[in-house]
Design a protein around this nucleic acid. Structure first.
Lengths: 226, 226
DNA sequence: GAGGAATATGATAAAACTGTGAACAATATC
DNA sequence: GATATTGTTCACAGTTTTATCATATTCCTC
């Protein structure tokens, strides 16, 4: 699985390095920017920044401005670094769609915990083009699937079916429901067709085919097992 | 739309009243609990609490314990009220699935802003319907059953039967009634069939099989015994 | 506590369902 | 238009689940 990309914006290089070190250790890919303008450039150059950690106090363009600018085009999660816990700041932040705060000074544990909490939340909510489920990553736009970081080839129907499964993780799905959602509503074919597609999906997913569970007398359920 | 229900848990009535006032003004319906046990009772009595605001420091059962208990069965958003911003506390909280913190003392604006932020986030997630009966938890969506926090495997009919029992807790059910509800209405088989299914259910439920009582000359009754 | 009736249990038969491979149909590709 | 790819149907085999039945056990009444 590709490491998630995190952009760290702070004018102090010492601080950037500190944050970066902890995140790199947790297997994130870290980008740095030393001011607001650079941050915006980096963000738009890399289409798949998963999280921004943003210092409030910066010369020229402060954190709020960067946030406002980015929020016009993106819902990327943003964590604010604030020196003082001024509550007016916090309130402003919530209105701007800030996801989390970290007050300086902070411990590495707090940093990592919040980063992961935010990413966990946004992974569930985001209707982004990427969906992750355990070792499987779906790129909806590109119609591409990666399993354990290796790309596999799926046909159109197989992809649609997998997408439906992944979007309904943990939910038991009857054949009827699957037919109505993955096939057209006016499709009156054999429900056993699903079985065949499931078979193919499972085999193409290799070991991860086990994510697709059979629920006897009912249908199927996609569930990531650890 | 019905007002969203918020449960406020704090041992100080002054604090509860304060929080309640601000939330009521924002058109939320507020429930109060003055200790952990009461909180859990209130939560399970009202199936649709949308958010819990939980004080960490409480006599008897503290906030963490309440959180742990509730997290076993529900993903309801939880906001923690902490007096001191001890970072070890925060870390523990993130592991327990806390959604947000508010450090005392706080302003009404901060409170409302965070409540709304959390609700906005969680509203997007669909609430899965869980049914709880003593040590048994039914996840209808996932077609999954947990007994004493351990997952057990049930067949389709067994699941249906258990679901019927749990939905009719405390009600004596005749075999005829069970047949008509769990089996198709056009099923004219032997009523003794139920006995066999009850037997299997009981054995799969282990000790909790005792929840299913035999009512002599009548049928069965599902009842949680403490 | 005996007798009768209802229930629990275990074994077994019957039914229902799923996995699979292959054939066939539809669609896309060149 | 020929060929390759994808999607659908079907039948058979193997499983799992469900129903039935005979027997053992329990419970209630007297």
């Amino acid at each position: 699985m590709d490491p998630l990309k995190i952009l760290v914006v702070d004018d102090e290089s010492r601080m950037r390095k500190l944050v970066k070190d902890f995140l790199v250790r947790k297997n994130y890919q870290v980008f740095e920017a030393e001011n607001g303008e650079a941050a915006i450039d980096v963000f738009y150059e890399n289409k798949d920044i998963a999280l921004i950690i943003l210092d409030v106090m910066m010369p020229k363009m402060d954190g709020w401005s960067v946030c406002r600018e980015i929020r016009q085009n993106s819902k990327v999660p943003i964590i604010m670094l604030t020196a003082k816990s001024d509550e007016r700041d916090e309130l402003l932040g919530y209105e701007l769609g800030i996801d989390e705060y970290i007050t300086k000074p902070f411990s590495p544990k707090i940093l990592v915990a919040r980063v992961e909490a935010v990413l966990r939340r946004s992974n569930n909510l985001s209707q982004d083009d990427m969906i992750r489920a355990g070792a499987i990553t779906l790129d909806i736009n590109a119609h591409q699937v990666k399993v354990d970081d290796k790309e596999i080839e799926l046909s159109y129907k197989e992809f649609e079916l997998l997408q439906y499964f992944v979007k309904n993780q943990g939910v038991a799905l009857s054949r009827e429901k699957i037919l109505n959602n993955v096939w057209n509503y006016d499709y009156f074919g054999d429900a056993r067709t699903i079985d065949t597609h499931v078979k193919k999906l499972r085999s193409k997913l290799g070991d991860r085919g086990e994510y697709i569970k059979t629920i006897w007398g009912m249908g199927y359920k996609f569930e990531v097992t650890e």
